[in-house]
Design a binder for these strands. Structure first.
Lengths: 336, 336
DNA sequence: CAACAGAATGTAAACGTTTACATCAGGCGG
DNA sequence: CCGCCTGATGTAAACGTTTACATTCTGTTG
């Protein structure tokens, strides 16, 4: 019995012949070690819980991809729970994971610090991704939403735009709020025009971008540039403009956020702000695993991942007319 | 001890006052039941393993969404493993899940029946999604890739096209191969032109669609319609055509597959074949849970989910074009 | 060949639940 | 007041591993 355990875990001294006999018997019997019993005695589950919000588009995939890759490399498995629209759902999922995982990666813009503390055993390894949680109690990684948004607006301002509209994301979304803050800051600092009217409400869907386009064109005077809080809305916007015969960037410059893979295949190719979600996930998992190793001597840390401005033709950087000949960048990850 | 168990599981007779005292103590101590110990004695893990391949675009998100939703409703958790590019990886993941889950949803176009059987305990509940596994040994759900592809080609043929190119997916991808078969069948049955040359290799990425566009335009005579094995490639195609001044559907009609959300926001809006991935996932999980209940009296079943043709303007649905058109047609249509 | 060292293997306790069964506390009819 | 019934609670075995420790085997050396 002990020898079987040693063979299957590859530790302890076992004669080669014995090892082979055990292996053969295990194969023949289709023996599978019981994970529960194992984690009962070893006090580790070798699983990490992953809490994701109701993500659309490629975000979910990318986040999981990064997390999964890092976890697999370290021999951990992923207990995933997605689609948490509100706090109550996230709370339920959180409770369900207790006692089944060694640590947690939480990406939930709807959850707050107290809720987390209340639902987690003391001193549990948790890594917060893009959560609106402050304080030193938890580890966290955030995307520099504000900085990225500001960079885009400054880019537009640098091209001479003074009246720049912003299509916002859902008001209860943390990323969206940060991006809005970046927009405001950059508009003010660059001497652009700032009124509340220029902040057009959206909800991250293509459809809301489509609607926003019509709304913006109705404004007087018409803004000369539009920064949308994500790429999906920018796509809706471009579709609407195309229909209405508005030229981009000739009549209106457009910039988005996220740099989703198809951004560069839009007509015109969409300027955006690139955030590597897969990296974010991988990094989060990496830090969580490190925290797991450190145990109780681990001290929480905050980290902000930079966002990179990606200039393409929709913002009109290259020429005032829609450039037909501008080349696409050749870099494209195969696995997205 | 037994009473605590009864309270926490809400079964067995317990006095109200006792129940409250137990709850209070549990809260105070932040007591969390040990999942391993629990599954050790109950012989169930309340977890379902999910094996996903290296999915492109929004597929991953959607599949998980559907599966997750159905699983959560039944009180199950998801042990997810993604990004399996080849059989070996899938095999490793499969082994790692044994003994930790009650059942398995496998969506892996790279795995085959024997491999599965070899890596799984006998009679384990498994649901195959879009796998190239035949035989009565396993439950399975497939998308009607072939039928959907044929529908698109027939639609194009119905508009008068006789020379229809097909940009294929990766040759080792099952979906891609099925779609190719649908293309061939429909081309032949509709009396279109069929040569091997019309099958242009792609790999499901936007980039490969972009490349394919250039390749197709170099053919002599130029095909009048192109059916791509997925939407991403169609998007790359459209971008290339836009750059080159080729009008769609004026010069070339285009149809894709998957009906991803942005398809209708392309210029022109992309005709496609719609498959509800979330439904596919939910349905798979539903059937797996049912199989779990039935236990050993369960009999495997195969199911095929229909794919729905979605006609938009990229295929030129409004007016059939003359069969012998060259690169420059006179008709210019406004997109709907 | 005896003694010994070190490697290999065996033994048993422990992990934290669930559950069949035993026990206990009251209420009720006789 | 006794036996009995029922509902509530306690007891202990069982689940399948890992691992410290005990035991046995194997080969080497004096």
């Amino acid at each position: 019995m002990a020898t079987v355990s040693r063979v299957l875990n590859g530790k302890g001294p076992v004669r080669d012949i014995t090892s082979r006999r055990v292996q053969a018997a295990a194969d023949r019997l289709r023996y599978v070690p019981h994970g529960g019993a194992r984690s009962l005695i070893t006090r580790r589950t070798n699983a990490i819980g992953v809490l994701l919000p109701d993500l659309f588009g490629e975000f979910f995939s990318e986040a999981i991809r990064g997390i999964d890759h890092a976890a697999r490399g370290a021999g951990y498995q992923l207990l995933v729970s997605g689609s948490h629209g509100n706090r109550a759902q996230a709370e339920t999922a959180l409770r369900a994971m207790r006692g089944r995982v060694d640590g947690l990666v939480v990406m939930s813009p709807n959850i707050d610090g107290p809720t987390l503390s209340a639902n987690l055993p003391e001193g549990w390894p948790v890594m917060l991704l893009n959560c609106a949680v402050d304080g030193a109690a938890f580890d966290s990684i955030n995307i520099d939403n504000e900085g990225g948004a500001a960079a885009m607006v400054e880019h537009l301002a640098g091209l001479g735009h003074r009246r720049i509209a912003h299509v916002t994301g859902p008001p209860d979304n943390w990323d969206a709020r940060e991006r809005l803050r970046g927009y405001r800051r950059a508009v003010l600092s660059s001497g652009g025009e700032y009124t509340r009217e220029l902040e057009v409400p959206g909800d991250f869907t293509e459809e809301s971008g489509y609607q926003a386009a019509r709304f913006v064109l109705g404004m007087e005077p018409t803004p000369t540039a539009i920064f949308t809080a994500n790429d999906s809305m920018a796509i809706g916007l471009l579709a609407a403009f195309q229909e209405m015969g508005v030229r981009v960037p000739g009549d209106v410059a457009v910039g988005g956020f996220d740099d989703i893979p198809i951004a560069r295949f839009m007509t015109p190719p969409l300027s955006s702000v690139s955030v590597s979600i897969a990296d974010l996930g991988a990094r989060a998992m990496g830090r969580l695993l490190a925290a797991l190793k450190e145990g109780s001597r681990h001290v929480p840390r905050h980290e902000t991942l930079p966002a990179r401005l990606v200039v393409r033709s929709s913002s009109g950087s290259r020429s005032p007319k829609p450039p037909k000949s501008s080349r696409h960048s050749r870099t494209r990850r195969k696995d997205s």
